[in-house]
Design a binder for these strands. Structure first.
Lengths: 199, 199, 199, 199
DNA sequence: AATGAATGAGAGTTCATTCAT
DNA sequence: TATGAATGAACTCTCATTCAT
């Protein structure tokens, strides 16, 4: 067998990404050095540059890829035949599960936006907006159908997302409440917040 | 009097704090150097050390003082005679106004927590919890009085605060909606989220 | 006495310049590190940046200041009343003495031109051209007066300067020939080269 | 034959040499990386080491081979039957043509001497001296024959070579003067410099 | 003979902090 | 209280070189 082209390299790149996510989440992009990332995976700092041209590229990659995975995951599980009420509930469950599972990715994709250079920032912002629109469309449909009572679509969208994403700040795997319980609590609150008719 | 003792110094310290808040908010604590802060106010970096023993002390001061101001502001305007429903509305208005007005302070007090050394972190966390408890007590009272329907007190507290604080992420002074309009929208949503009886 | 403002700093800057000239001459700009320069004068590398913003600025300064000193030195000793033949001889003696005395400065100002960034290069080139013109004017005057026989002014200027400057490549203070002897030899050769009438 | 043994390799080595000469001439040995050289010829840096054991060997090779080619070229065209005056003129023409044609090789063989390690330096210096001696012998013969008037053989040799080599610094293929014109100008000046009797 | 990944050292530069003045 | 100069450590990134494939 010839060279396992792209194999060893791809593995190392993945390890770098993983270590970086974890360290950036804990200490912040600016506070984490390339040496720290390298040390975490028993590598010399210089070797990272075989896989990522700069620290900034590494960050951009993490955020862009996180957003793309998130969008893809939603697209794959979205069921367009659902009525708005069910669609909203599905979105809430999806968002909570995904954000709780990928805590670090989510966290840095909120915290490290300001460390992106202008172009990279714009790119990630656009992806984020595409995700927000997923929710907005649901609220819009429910509003139009008269099953939600939403004062302002944009504000409601931001409020629901902020509320849900906040969970990543305090959720613990072995906490007082299970993820299922938390889901039900949030579904209840969000139903109320968007004025969903009982049913 | 040869010199307004303590006056010039206090002024400089205040200028440093102000420049630091603004720079930390924009670029993050770790990405901002003492030299940058000094340059902003036409000073040499060394001079900052006449007023703050370390960069970490400077950060701690900013967060602690922000939280103490926030708590004091609430304490000053809280009206213990209000019924839970009115108290909640008052809290929502207060939180939105304060957070929108002191955007940078609020922002860094969320973003830079992880850059605090252990003890300082604990101190700020405790202050934050004291603030959260203000809201929690209101929800608790409303729940007990049967005017709110809250599945879990802690979750509801966190959800409401996350929802409200999210506003600082997108609010613009000259945006589409006035602060008053935003307040009404949030009051409506939060009423729904906590199952407040119409009235 | 208050602070000896600019004294300590100016001294250090001068020491840096001196060490840099000497090291650049021996090993070349690109091959010499800021740490090497610093070590030479018992300083930390970082401290150099209190006096020179970048390594490139340091180099530019050395070359520009060398050329300016050279021009000033010539201007101070030039005697406009001299006839072309005597003026040429005076120039030859001046150039040899100055270039032999300031060997390292001269050397790097030829060798390190390509390490200058575009703007800095243009600046130094212009100074160099101003110096060449000093000789050219002499040759021109002698040509016009019929005391020199010069085929092409520009070529003759370059040839004489190249010939003279070459001395720095092999001159040794304690070599076989004294500077005086070398001067006489070059005066003879250059007289011949420019077709100066015997006198 | 499955493979042109030694052919592909020799070609690559030649490409490396060529790229290196060109880059060293423009930026200097110390400022050029093996990666830069490799990139220039669409290669990975590591591959260069199949052809040259170190960067220093590569440099040494370039200088030694340049000097050997130069010496061989002179040896091939030297006509020992020429009288000193004609021999000098032949040398001038040869030197100018060769140095103008092989500008980069010549340039680095002057500029990069100091980047040679001790032994390699000695080797190249010896070759250079062998070349200088070619001129020296001519001057010597002319002096002995009474057709040149040379104050000091060594100084005259260095002066003539410096003067001639200086041309590479400003000669342009499409400049104001053709190479032929430049040759005549230099021949005239050098005749004068060595006190050649008119004839 | 070439690649892609790695090492270990070192580059230029900036950092928080100190201190004599 | 402020300055300007210094330290020693750290930063991102590049280097020459090696080596398994």
């Amino acid at each position: 067998m010839a060279r396992k082209v792209g194999s060893v390299g791809a593995e190392t790149a993945e390890k770098v990404r993983h270590a970086a996510v974890s360290l950036f989440a804990r200490y912040g992009y600016a506070a984490v050095s390339m040496r720290q990332i390298a040390r975490e995976i028993d590598l010399q700092a210089g070797a990272i540059y075989n896989h990522f041209p700069t620290k900034q590229h590494l960050l951009r990659g993490l955020l862009v890829e996180h957003m793309e995975r998130l969008l893809k995951a939603w697209d794959e599980q979205e069921d367009p035949s659902l009525a708005p009420a069910e669609a909203l509930i599905a979105f809430v469950r999806f968002h909570l599960r995904y954000h709780v599972k990928c805590g670090d990715d989510v966290f840095i994709s909120y915290m490290e936006l300001r460390n992106l250079e202008e172009d990279n920032f714009a790119e990630v912002e656009q992806l984020r907006r595409r995700y927000e629109i997923k929710l907005r469309r649901i609220l819009e449909a429910g509003s139009a159908a008269g099953v939600f009572r939403v004062g302002d679509l944009h504000v409601a969208t931001m409020a629901v997302i902020a509320m849900l994403t906040g969970v990543t700040g305090w959720y613990r795997y072995d906490g007082r409440l299970s993820l299922q319980e938390i889901e039900e609590l949030y579904i209840d609150m969000i139903r109320g917040a968007v004025g969903m008719k009982e049913g």
